[in-house]
Design a protein around this nucleic acid. Structure first.
Lengths: 333, 333
DNA sequence: TTGAAAGCGCTAACAG
DNA sequence: CTGTTAGCGCTTTCAA
């Protein structure tokens, strides 16, 4: 037999005041006599009263004190850190995070967004795997703040927080060129992702600027898991003219590359996009950045919008930096 | 000017039927004439109607289609994988995950639990950093299913899903003993955590069974971040009689150990609790298990309870296995 | 400083 | 098969 949960009504009866008065006390509003407040508080404590957030939030136009976060897969450290950054920023203002993974599947993303919208989240943080943001656009038009992280949408004018993808790739490639590499391979994520496209484009631009014209033949896109990345790396190395250096465009692909390289004698130089936990121990040169910051900045942007800031969309570009370690040595002749 | 959101009421008016009928259609209930249903659906689509989940869930004793997950820190891969496993299991039944990190702080955990309870989650999945579960106990008594993950509570009789901590540690130690190690060090997490205590106890038991009596002097507890773990490892190695092998009790500590060992010539054998992303590349022997499974089993348990299963508390113990790699070689003389 | 009344959007319970 | 009524727990008017 589960006993029933005390309501605000019950507290009112118990302390002999009106519901409105209890409400005022519970919400710390002014204009309540100290004695009345004390009496109400005592009754609430005795009864073990806990306000029903669902009821409170349920009102015309009211929002849940909740923010939706849609990413690819929580278990990817990149997304996990975004989640952490966002959660920390939302903590004090009292918002909870509804975290959902789209598994990089557009259809699933739509389902998730619909769910979150139906739940009347106060805002949405999304690393989108979708090109069509109809639902999000509609929700945004209805006043729900939306911030895109990592990947900027082309069909929507909303706040964004992205990395300096071109700058990062340029740093990586120039570093390798400096070290004497010319045959540089690139192993990248799904071609349709904007981050991937920007990185590949910067790769090409930098290579061309250095006078390397056949860079395209060593570009392998569409590796979307560790195994595919390992395969792409092996394929590159088995080429007649294998690369002396490889750039990977995210942490998962770097992991795949390391798996592929671990037992190869012809190990090329390696630079990875995204820093990772043991990069220092393994001595891997990386383009580093702070995913936590991406989550935090996105959350802060959301909070500003929730607070009523209706300035035109802002576009944050977070800096990246090259962390040089042993893996980016000169080519072996 | 944000336009207003269409309600079920609006759809009813638009399609000339009662609200109840619209409700039936929207929820796919039976006993609606196909033509009526079609008309309602058309009206709903035209208006862009989306049901208000907050309103739907707000009713006497009603719960939100939401499950709370409290862990230490989402950015720790162990917790991130638990989250993924839980999310996947909750996906089809239509539940969303409210994920919250306690940062291993008991006070923060209480705040989080209170928030989740106030939000009327349908169930709670918790990796607790707290010893006192008063609030959780009360909520559990009120009928909210609660499942403890990884760490079993002593003050509460609820479902649990934990690892075979003793078995895992025994495997690790026996393996090292087999390889000829006797001076084995242990670097572990906060002493108050039940997982830690179980692992240390099994360490001692196994060592004693092998006739090693001074094992306790090489046990270092209370490393709760990577840096502390690295320090503890260095301290062990700087001892007059340093260990020839070290066991670390979780992935963070293993990371710290690797940082500490990377530039030491006197590198001891190493076995870590928890598998991790690049353990294969680095050749680290580990006690492996599947955090995803922990999340999944916990979520399934929760779903069963939500569905009304009121059998006595169940206690799941997940298997672990030893994955032998290069790091656990014989002692160097 | 306090209270009474109304209502948020939806669904159970009960008619028709 | 469809409609009417009532009400979830809380906060927002508006009065007192």
């Amino acid at each position: 037999m589960t006993s029933t949960r005390p309501t605000l009504q019950a507290v009112a009866t118990r302390s002999g005041v009106s519901m409105k008065t209890v409400s005022r006390v519970v919400n710390g509003e002014r204009y309540v006599a100290p004695e009345t407040a004390a009496r109400v508080l005592a009754a609430a404590a005795e009864l073990g009263f806990r306000p029903n957030a669902l009821a409170r939030e349920f009102r015309a136009g009211a929002r849940s004190a909740t923010v939706g976060l849609v990413t690819g897969d929580v278990a990817n450290p990149f997304y996990a850190r975004i989640a952490r950054g966002a959660e920390h920023a939302l903590r004090d203002p009292g918002y909870s995070l509804l975290a959902a993974s789209n598994d990089e599947d557009p259809a699933r993303e739509r389902t998730l967004v619909a769910q979150l919208v139906d739940r009347r989240v106060s805002g949405l943080l999304v690393v989108s795997a979708d090109d069509d943001h109809g639902l999000l656009a509609a929700e945004h038009a209805l006043g729900t703040p939306v911030v895109f992280l990592d990947r900027a949408p082309v069909d929507l004018d909303v706040d964004t927080v992205v990395l300096d993808n071109a700058g990062g790739m340029r740093l990586a490639v120039e570093h390798l060129l400096d070290r004497g590499h010319h045959r540089i391979g690139l192993v990248g994520d799904l071609g349709r992702l904007s981050t991937h496209r920007e990185r590949v484009e910067a790769f090409g631009t930098t290579m061309r600027a250095a006078g390397v014209t056949d860079w395209e033949r060593r570009v392998r896109s569409d590796s979307h898991d560790v195994e595919q990345a390992a395969g792409a790396v092996r394929a590159l190395l088995d080429d007649a003219e294998p690369p002396t250096a490889i750039v990977t465009t995210n942490n998962r692909i770097t992991t795949g590359a390391l798996r592929a390289l671990v037992d190869r004698p012809d190990r090329p130089a390696l630079v990875g996009f995204d820093d990772f936990d043991l990069a220092d121990v393994l001595g891997i040169t990386v383009v580093a950045h702070e995913p936590d910051t991406m989550g935090r900045v996105g959350a802060e942007e959301l909070l500003a919008r929730i607070a009523g800031d209706d300035a035109p969309a802002r576009h944050h570009v977070l800096p990246v930096r090259l962390v040089v370690r042993a893996s980016s040595g000169a080519p072996t002749p």
